[in-house]
Amino acid sequence: MSPIRLALVGLGKIARDQHLPAIAATEGIELVAIASRNAALDGLPHFTTLEALLASDVAFDAVALCTPPQGRREQAALALSAGKHVLLEKPPGATVSEIGPLIETAREHGLTLFATWHSRFAPAVEPARALLAKRHINTVTITWKEDVRVWHPGQDWIFAPGGLGVFDPAINALSILTRILPHPVFVTGAELAFPANRAAPIAATVEMADSNNIPIRADLDFLQTGPQSWDIRVETDAGAVVLSGGGARLTQDGVVLSDAPEAEYAGIYKHFTGLIEAGQSDVDLSPLALVADAFLLGRRVTVDAFDY
């Protein structure tokens, strides 16, 4: 079978750090073009917009959209209407409601739409899911704290409306949470800390529960210095189950059950090629819905202005 010819839209930090090496390492997919306003890649056709790429004579089958979420719906709709399969970086869009029409368009055209949650492909996530399916869960605590100046240097879009602020990284935790817990999760309350000069929160606490009323708390911070924290601790009838390192490591009462090298984006592209071959889509909006609900229920507090 011929490889899937992929065009990458948006060539920023996440595309260079994660997408390019994962594409190169994945059988059955080949990068054939770049569409980016600010960057190009030696040896590949380059266009400043997706519209220009679609109007060219470059043959391709699919696009990976790595642009900020605020404009992703328009790009996805354009690509699907042109008969291209679409991979969406996380979050899949700036709102929950804008994704529904994309799902319908993909279905009508017989195309694949894949809303990626890269943290679900971390090596310890599926072992954690299997372990927790056999345990009685008492409480869940999420600690997701990182330094925005390190991971998103100068990226003002992340604090613009639709950029999600601290929820841009924290949605990774929510994507893991909604994968490993056996029952649906919903938000019960939140406090969101907005810098005086920004339109998205820089820190937050979110209270949640599942359908069995298990209490879940998330402590989120975008100004963490020193060691970064990407941890989910689940207290169970058999002790503490801890996913650390963003889902890379799983322990139970301090005993290591899983600890493997990170390969999240390789997993994403393997899954994407499999979806295309099977004629299927994969669009789970539950992590984005939790973020939207945190904004709906959250009490807003104003904190010091933030500048890079």
Rank of each mutant, 00 (worst) to 15 (best):
R120H: 04
S244H: 09
I14V: 15
Q18D: 09
T178Y: 01
P68E: 13
A173W: 05
T143F: 07
A196Y: 12
N197S: 14
A218K: 04
L192D: 13
W157N: 07
R16D: 03
T26L: 15
I232P: 12
Y269G: 08
G43L: 04
I171C: 08
I14C: 10
R16K: 06
Q155T: 11
K13C: 07
R73L: 04
R72A: 04
R120F: 02
E74M: 07
Q224L: 02
L275N: 03
A94T: 11
G274W: 01
A203P: 04
L53G: 08
A266S: 12
F60S: 00
R233K: 11
Q280N: 04
A76C: 07
P92R: 00
K13N: 13
G189R: 12
E262D: 09
A263K: 13
I23L: 14
P201V: 03
I4N: 01
Q224F: 08
D284W: 00
R120N: 04
P91W: 07
L131V: 06
L131Q: 11
A278L: 06
P68S: 10
I29D: 08
A190C: 04
R129V: 09
R5S: 12
V58Q: 13
P169E: 09
G226P: 09
L65F: 01
A82Y: 01
K90M: 14
D168T: 15
E98L: 10
D282M: 00
V303C: 13
I142V: 11
R107E: 02
E51T: 11
I276L: 14
R107W: 02
A263Q: 13
I268G: 01
H183F: 14
V96S: 02
I29C: 07
H271I: 00
D219S: 11
I176F: 02
A55N: 15
P69H: 12
T95C: 03
Q228C: 05
L80F: 00
E104M: 10
A133T: 08
P153T: 15
K84H: 06
D221K: 05
S281E: 00
P101H: 10
T95S: 15
D293Q: 15
V150H: 09
A35Q: 08
G247M: 10
D156R: 11
Y308I: 14
I142M: 12
A25H: 01
S281T: 00
P127R: 14
R249H: 12
A199C: 12
E207G: 06
A55R: 15
K90D: 02
S281K: 02
I14Q: 05
Y308H: 13
A76T: 04
F159Q: 04
P182W: 09
L44V: 07
I4Y: 00
T141G: 07
A292S: 15
A305T: 12
I232Q: 14
D284G: 00
T95Q: 05
L6V: 09
T116C: 14
G267M: 11
L44F: 14
N38L: 11
I158A: 12
P3R: 08
S2V: 11
G100T: 14
V283L: 01
L257F: 10
F114Q: 00
